[in-house]
């Protein structure tokens, strides 16, 4: 079957989709967006977390056919999503502006010059990334929590991220990163 939906602000079309495919598979294998990770494919680890019509979900538990006509944000679109939020621009970027940024270019190999969302920068700065496999899902979940709850307690952070497993860090640096992002967000206001 064919599925049309929006990913990170861009219309996408996937063809020849097997009916049993998940949104995760379509993103990773058909649309060239492997940032969402395939760690368990049973909704237990949160590595595949994306926002579906704004809401964090496990993309491994969304059938591809269910996203027809809907809006998805993945880790690849997180920086742009955060930028639009900070501009108070809820309706997407003007096309020219988007092209302008694209033309500046980033070195996709080194990541140098890449614009990051505050939560992404905080994860790097706090040492919250080791193997990094859980990172994309955690970033999407944490970013959404800070959107709803800009001044979270530690218990709030733990609850919001309880659907995202990490095997490397022991979560302490992840806590640090989210606290750091929240603090920076408050300073910026």
């Amino acid at each position: 079957m064919r599925v049309n939906f929006t990913v990170n602000g861009r219309p996408q079309e996937a063809d020849d989709v097997w009916e049993g495919e998940s949104l995760l598979y379509v993103l990773r294998e058909r649309l060239g967006l492997p940032g969402s990770k395939n760690a368990c494919e049973q909704g237990e680890c949160g590595s595949c977390t994306v926002r579906l019509d704004g809401v964090p979900v496990c993309s491994c538990l969304v059938a591809a056919g269910q996203v027809e006509g809907r809006d998805v944000v993945t880790v690849e679109g997180l920086a742009e999503h955060a930028r639009q939020r900070s501009c108070g621009d809820a309706h997407g970027t003007a096309l020219d502006e988007a092209r302008g940024r694209q033309a500046q270019g980033t070195d996709s190999q080194t990541g140098e010059g890449t614009e990051l969302a505050p939560i992404q920068q905080a994860f790097i700065d706090a040492g919250a990334v080791q193997c990094g496999f859980c990172t994309p899902g955690l970033l999407v979940a944490a970013d959404e929590m800070l959107e709803r709850n800009p001044d979270p307690t530690d218990a709030d952070i733990r609850e919001a991220l309880s659907g995202n497993l990490c095997r490397c860090t022991g979560y302490e640096k992840i806590m640090d990163a989210v606290r750091l992002a929240a603090a920076r967000q408050q300073e910026a206001v």
Binding site: P34, T110, G111, T114, Q120, V129, T135
Partner: peptide, 23 residues
């Protein structure tokens, strides 16, 4: 010094290519 990971940016943007991302 606590220098930061050289692969940090790639890992937070989803661009870091894990073995399961090969295509």
């Amino acid at each position: 010094e606590s220098t930061l990971r050289p692969d940090g940016t790639l890992k937070v943007t989803g661009e870091f290519a894990y073995s399961s991302d090969m295509w």
